[in-house]
Structure formats: structure tokens, C-alpha cells
Design a protein around this nucleic acid. Structure first.
Lengths: 350, 350
DNA sequence: CTGAAAGCGCTAACAA
DNA sequence: TTGTTAGCGCTTTCAG
């Protein structure tokens, strides 16, 4: 391995000068050129480990996500990676598997590896403890979910708005018994999406769009909590369909549960758009699904990109007050919410 | 930050003793206990950066994959991660985007970060150069694809066998004009899968399963090279369908291209199993696709797990001769290859 | 602008 | 078994 000392010797200067050349110190152009030439000839690459030890700060940032198989998080990861490139930081991807213990281990590694900073989509709102990092002055940005009581920058999705827009769309499409399959109780994302649903329903009751008889039904009876996974979505939907007066549409609060919900619908012989289905978050290769699925579009890439940008500011020493950035969702209207009586052209179904 | 010296002072021993306690050196139980207690009280965690610098070897392994959004690679990544846990190594996931330059950059980082080793699914068979790592004695395992001329351990899929089994299955299902949409020319995976296809066709011609008139058609005319991406699969299939005498089934050499191929079929008003479709590699949430898709199952998780195990042996200093492990594929028969005249029960289509 | 020197936290010879 | 010592490769005062 060629070291800074080898280069120094070859260029006839001191190691300090070589270091300055590579770190923007003041060096006369002539000597700088000599150093660069020597470095190139010897194939010198600064040893990042030594740099990290000396500077007490590494050049990688940790990205902790709960599920690497969820396309939402892979897309987020790409955003982080792209933003990190700009500063020459590399990204270590750690898959916490929605598991607080695994997450804690990775946070420990982040510390022990002296990472430059950490971006974390917390495995749990209450179980995730970011304080050891804060205590050691390591910059942290929370993304998608904000752990309770953590004083860190955060980049979040406007879940409530997304849930509201979704539910409003279903009502506008003339569905009248709109259910909501949301995530686990206590998860901020589920609660917020549910809150959006409730707000939309409440508004519709208030302005007469929905008949006011049995308002309880719509605000509570048609709500199911599940686990954000395929199986949970399936059982929740099966449960809804078994009701005496089942819903005629559902807002499903994440992509995986939507897959399960569609399976349950199919098993019951009901299909969109006769039964309206709206997914919070797209499914991969949505093009294959017939009829095509109306979805709330999440800014996953931007979430990652923004978080990484914020983190880099902190790493660079920014002392701004803590920020929370909230990114808006979009709505992609497709066939699965065409309306309870809609007839789709054959091409949309085959 | 508490260092080994702090612990040593608190326990009334030398730093070396503390180091021994944490690295399995010989220390009297009594002193060891004292050290551990002190370490716990002070919340000591060994500084991995300093360890790496001193030992000239880090405790992370790099995993370079071409496409983090492909479920095949995420599953492989999980296998690597699980295997790595056993030795306490962490995994840095690097997404090379099928881009040789990006890949080279990451390989440089692996060196500069003194990673313990690297597992690489090469972006290119000829463009990927692993020699700098070999030159510096860094253990490398190639996975899924083996770069040309690299003398490294490798864990591969039996692509040829998979392609052969797939094609045989289509023929057995009474399809007679079986096409093959394979990957880019020059990629070992595409060539091998294609070779399997050709072998099966040749056998069928030889034993009379296929009429021997126009053998050229089957061996060459029905073959298309595409780019392993959705768009490529779509155009290749469109091209096949536009032939004067189009195929009645296709073996598609990866999951993404299958998605495209299905889109092209749908656009042409043809659907499986009337037109047989067999995908090399499963699609995520396959349960949503109707009719359900027959696939060659890839041992992606095992690929990763095996590669990581091999790598760890090398890291531990194993001097065995170079190994190549080849893992077999499976075949999951579903509805999309039920036969050209098959009538599926309604439930399979709705 | 440049070089000498100190030291980041840890481990591995070597001595005791 | 234990402690002392000498660095791993780099950056950063501090003099010059």
C-alpha cells in the first residue's frame, strides 16, 4: 500500500504538504503539481481509515431502514445515495427488519465505526432510542417516521393529507361505504393516514355527501388495524367483507396490505372497480395488475434525497434550529376506483 | 468517548490487558472480571476505526450489486447479511446500477476503507476489473456472474439447467413454437440461459417431439436479445408477435423482461396460457398476476448466504484452492403454461 | 508556505 | 500472565 509518506518522499516534500494538497491547504502550485504527479505514479489513495481515526469522523453515512424488500425504501435509499455522492460520502445500508434490537445493534455500529451521520426510518416510534448518538454529537435525520421525543431533523410524508385526498377521491367516485385498512395502532404513519380518512368522512357527513344515518359506521365500524404486511391486509379485508353491511370501497394504508386486500377480494368474488380499492403507496410493476390500481404516490426518492441533504448540512456543522420537512403526496387515479357501477373497457381488464 | 485507556485506568490494569479481555487473550479470570465491570460502567465500546487501522483490516464487507430494486438482489443481500451476522461483520450495500464506472469507484472505496472483503455481482463480464483487490490481498467472491478472467471464488446459478428445464416444460405443455427472450449478448447469464433453451430445442428436434421442418426457426429465428429490463422485454415480445409465423410460447430470461413481455402480449390481445409464458426468476407479489406465472425459481437467498460464508472463510485465512459453487434452480409450475388449448377455471383468471 | 512532531485508539511484539 | 513500547496512516498545531 502506498502511503502519504511514500508520496512525500517521491515528491521531495513532507507528508504534511502531501496532506495539504489533498485537503485544500495552501501549497505553491509548483510543489502541488509535483505531489500530484508522484501520487498518480504511485497509485496513491488516501487511507480512509486513518483519516477517520485522525479526524474522529468517518466518510460513510448509515441508512437504517426497516425493510429492504419494500420498494418504498429501496427508492428512498437511491435518493440518499444520489445526494451523498455529491459530498463524496458513501452510504451503508442497514436493514433493521422492523426489529428494535437489530436496530440498536446497528446504531452501536454507527458509533463504533465513527460514521459521519445516520439517517433512520425508525423501527418503532417508542422503542427507537436515538439519544446515544445525540450524546456523542453524531448528526441524525429521521425519515418517514419520527421516533417519539427525539430531537432530530426529520423528513416526513404528509400522511394525513394523503389519506384525506384518497378518501375524498373514493367518495367523489360515488362509493358510499368507504372502509379504511390502516397499520398498527401507535405507529405514527398509520394514525395519520387514518386521521386523514376520518377527516374526509367527517366532512362528507357534514356537507351531506354521505347520509348522516349511522355515521358511527363510517367513522369507526369500517376501520381495521393491521400490520402493514400482506397477510394483515388480507385478513382485515376478509373481516370487512364478512360484515352484515360490508363496505363498497377501501382505502388501504400501505402497498403490501393492498396486495393482501386484493387477494381477499378476489377470494370473495369481488373485484375493482365494483369494489373500490385505493392504495397508499404504489406497488412495483403496477402495470401488471388488472384493473390498474389507483394509488397515493409517495415521494420516496425525494424523501431520501432531502434527508441526505439535511444530514450533510449538519455534518458540515450547520447549527440551524431543528427542521421538519413535510413532503406532499400525489394521487394517481386509475381504474380500480372508477366507481361502483363503472363498466371498464375490455382492454382494461384483460 | 471512553477508550481502552480509560477502562484500563478504572480497572487498574494496562491497556493491553483490556485489549486481551476483548480479543480472547489470556487473562486471569479475576482481572478479566474487573475489566469487564469497568468497561460496562463506562459504557465502553471498542473503536472499530482504530481497530481497523491497527489490524489493517476492517470489519465490514462490501456487497456490490447492480440493481437494488430487483427483488432477486435484495433477497441475495439478505442472505449475505444473515451469514455475515455470524462473524460479527457488517455489510455495506453498494448499488452499482449496472454501471462499470460506479462499480470501479466502489471497489476503490472498498480498498480505501480497508474492508474485510467484497462480494460482487459484476456489472459487466469484461469491464469489471477485480485485479486491484487481488493485488492487495483483499478476499473477493463473485456472485451470480463471474467476470472474465478473475481468479476468485464464485457462487453461481445453474442457468443452463434452468433454461433447459423451462424450455422442456413448455414443450411438454404442448407449445410448439417456443421463443426465447434472453439478455444482452456477452452477459454470461443470458448466454447460459439461452444455451439451455437451445439444448432443449435441439433434443426435442432429435427425438421427434418437434417436427424437423424448419429447425432453423426454432434454434435462431425465435431468439431475441434484450437488456434485462422491462422495456427490452416489451419490445422483444412485440417483435416476436409481429413475425409472419409468431411463436406460441416464450421463455423469458429474467423477471423484469417478463413484465414487459406480458404487457406486449396484453397489447396484442394475447394472454397466457393461450400463449405460454415462463419467467426465469419470480416476480414480487406474483400472487397478484393473473393467470399465475410459471417461473424458474432462483436460489437468491442461498446465493448470498453461500457467498458470504465462502468470503468469511477466506477472510479467516483459508488457503483452499479456488471454488466455484453452482446452485440449482427449481421450477414452479403455475397457470401461465397450462398449454395452448387449456381452459382455466374462472377463478384462475378473475 | 513548509516541515517537524504529536497523537487519534488500538494491537502485537517483546520483556519481565 | 502482564506491562511497556512502538507504531498503523493520517491531520494538525506550532515553529520557522
Amino acid at each position: 500500500m502506498t502511503t502519504i509518506t511514500d508520496v512525500a518522499r517521491a515528491a521531495g516534500v513532507s507528508p504534511a504538504t502531501v496532506s495539504r494538497v489533498f485537503n485544500g491547504g495552501r501549497v505553491t502550485p509548483e510543489r502541488a503539481a509535483r505531489v500530484r504527479r508522484a501520487a498518480a505514479e504511485l497509485g496513491f489513495e488516501p487511507n480512509r481509515v486513518a483519516q477517520s481515526l485522525r479526524k474522529q469522523r468517518g466518510s460513510v453515512i448509515g441508512l437504517l431502514i426497516p425493510d429492504i424488500e419494500n420498494p418504498f425504501f429501496t427508492s428512498l435509499a437511491r435518493g440518499v445515495e444520489d445526494a451523498a455522492q455529491q459530498t463524496g460520502l458513501s452510504v451503508v445500508l442497514c436493514n433493521t427488519d422492523e426489529n428494535v434490537d437489530k436496530e440498536r445493534r446497528y446504531l452501536g455500529i454507527a458509533l463504533a465505526e465513527q460514521m459521519a451521520g445516520v439517517i433512520v426510518a425508525a423501527a418503532s416510534r417508542v422503542g427507537t432510542d436515538l439519544s446515544p448518538l445525540a450524546a456523542r454529537g453524531m448528526p441524525v435525520v429521521a425519515v418517514d417516521r419520527r421516533p417519539k421525543g427525539a430531537s432530530v431533523d426529520a423528513v416526513l410524508v404528509d400522511n394525513q393529507h394523503g389519506g384525506e385526498a384518497a378518501t375524498e377521491h373514493l367518495l367523489r367516485s360515488r362509493y358510499r361505504r368507504v372502509a379504511c385498512v390502516t397499520g398498527p395502532e401507535g405507529a405514527s404513519t398509520s394514525e395519520e393516514r387514518l386521521a386523514g380518512y376520518r377527516a374526509a368522512i367527517r366532512d362528507a357527513l357534514a356537507d351531506g355527501t354521505l347520509p348522516s344515518d349511522g355515521p358511527d359506521d363510517l367513522l369507526t365500524a369500517y376501520v381495521r388495524h393491521a400490520d402493514f404486511r400482506v397477510g394483515g391486509g388480507r385478513s382485515a379485508m376478509a373481516d370487512l367483507l364478512a360484515m352484515e353491511r360490508p363496505p363498497d370501497a377501501a382505502f388501504v394504508a400501505n402497498n403490501l396490505m393492498t396486495v393482501g386486500a386484493l387477494e381477499a377480494l378476489r377470494a370473495a368474488g369481488r373485484t375493482p372497480p365494483g369494489f373500490g380499492v385505493l392504495s397508499f403507496g404504489g406497488v412495483p410493476w403496477a402495470g401488471l395488475v388488472r384493473p390498474s390500481l389507483t394509488t397515493v404516490e409517495l415521494p420516496s426518492y425525494e424523501l431520501g434525497f432531502t434527508a441526505a441533504t439535511l444530514l450533510q448540512e449538519r455534518i458540515a456543522g450547520s447549527a440551524k434550529p431543528l427542521q421538519t420537512v413535510v413532503l406532499r403526496t400525489g394521487l394517481s387515479v386509475r381504474d380500480s376506483t372508477a366507481g361502483p357501477g363503472a363498466r371498464l373497457p375490455a382492454a382494461a381488464l384483460e
